[in-house]
Amino acid sequence: MDTFAIPPAFAWPVQFCIFSSAVTYVLSVITSNVSQVDRLWTFLPTIYTAYFALLPLWPQEQLFYLVPYTPASLGIVPGAYNPRAIMMLCLVITWMFRLSYNTYRRGLFDLKDEDYRWAVLRKQLHPILFQITNLTFISAIQNILLLLLGIPTYVAATQPIQPLDNRDYGVIFLSLIVLALEFTSDNQQYAFQTFKHENRRFHRSHQWPGARLEWSPADAGRGFITRGLWAWSRHPNFACEQSFWWIMTLASITPSQLSFADLRSSLLGGKFDPSPLLGALAPLTPALALSALFFSSTLYTEAITASKYPGYAAYQARVGMFSPVATVFKGLWLAVAGGRVEIERTIWGKETKDE
């Protein structure tokens, strides 16, 4: 039985995760709307991050169910906060404000609103199979993933307390750059959708800096955004989202935790043992899990988009899914193989994107 015991540090997070999974599932059934987790996505990673960063704050015994506490067995000294964990909490709070703002203006906080992908999936699956998907993936697995995003802060919070160093300042700088780019990509997409659906009421000057692009009737007719950061990545917002959590994950671990020495020994020994590989990848679990989710969900999203807009195949052929580097290589390949001018005319009209 001890093999399956929950580590003391995760007693409250697992308790809260089970509660949030159950509540979101029940609400999704009652309301026939499965976007309940989507509405909480902006808050749950922040809640778990705050719990771990503030471990010295909580009482050592739980007062009652769902109240956070720090088990005495963790050996956390009350009031002894880890600066790196607090730094990560501040960055995640910044991330939360950006995502909350974007979620709000998209209308997803409206309890009647549902992500269009769930509506499509509901039509594709038998009602029983859809409810199984709702229970296992939409409600449970996504809540577990959101818990995992708090683990980097737990790792940082349980390290020896030291002042912030140059590495930490680098993390702050990179994180803010990524969040600024993500904010810009969100704004560009919102500006495009506003122009597309409310052309007569669209005012370029009302958009955020970086999103004041010159949209044309051809852009609206194409149906999907291809300008600004979206000329370099088909999903710059998704690329930035993954980058942010990769930065958080890597910021919390030490080089020794990423050592592949045991893996090399296993491979050179002539008999492969997967346990060293799993041990080496374990610290990367939060970022790996998020990237796996984004990759699979983006494939599904693009399948829907491609079925709606004939020109999307050309966009896929010219622009990388996430990485701008892939976009450069796609451009070079098309220049050699031929067809680049025609594809770029389909995507950007008479203008072509400079590399």
Rank of each mutant, 00 (worst) to 15 (best):
P56L: 07
L66K: 12
Q62N: 08
L55M: 12
V77G: 03
W41R: 11
F64W: 13
Q142C: 10
K112N: 14
P71R: 15
G75N: 11
S100D: 03
A140N: 11
Y51P: 11
P68R: 03
Y48T: 08
P71D: 11
L44G: 01
D115T: 06
W95D: 06
Q15C: 13
A22P: 02
L99S: 07
S35F: 05
D38N: 07
M88S: 09
P56T: 07
L99E: 03
T70N: 12
F109K: 11
S32K: 13
A11Q: 14
A85C: 09
I47D: 00
N134M: 09
G79V: 04
H126T: 09
P127E: 05
S35W: 02
I76P: 10
S139F: 04
I128E: 04
S28R: 01
F64A: 13
E61Q: 14
V23A: 15
C90W: 01
Y104M: 15
V77P: 07
W58L: 05
L135R: 08
L54P: 03
Y104T: 14
V67M: 14
P56R: 08
Y48I: 12
L66H: 08
I141V: 15
F130T: 05
L89S: 07
Y51R: 05
T136E: 03
T103L: 14
N33M: 00
Q131G: 05
W95I: 10
P127N: 10
S100H: 13
V34S: 13
F19S: 04
S28A: 15
I144Y: 10
P78V: 05
M88F: 01
H126A: 12
Y69I: 14
P59E: 03
R84E: 01
S35E: 02
F109W: 15
W12Q: 11
A50N: 01
L111G: 09
Y81V: 09
M88E: 07
S32G: 01
R105E: 08
A119I: 07
I128P: 04
V77D: 08
I128N: 06
R39W: 04
A140D: 02
H126E: 12
K123D: 09
N134E: 08
Y51D: 05
L66Q: 11
R98T: 02
F137A: 13
L27M: 12
Q36A: 05
P45I: 00
W41I: 09
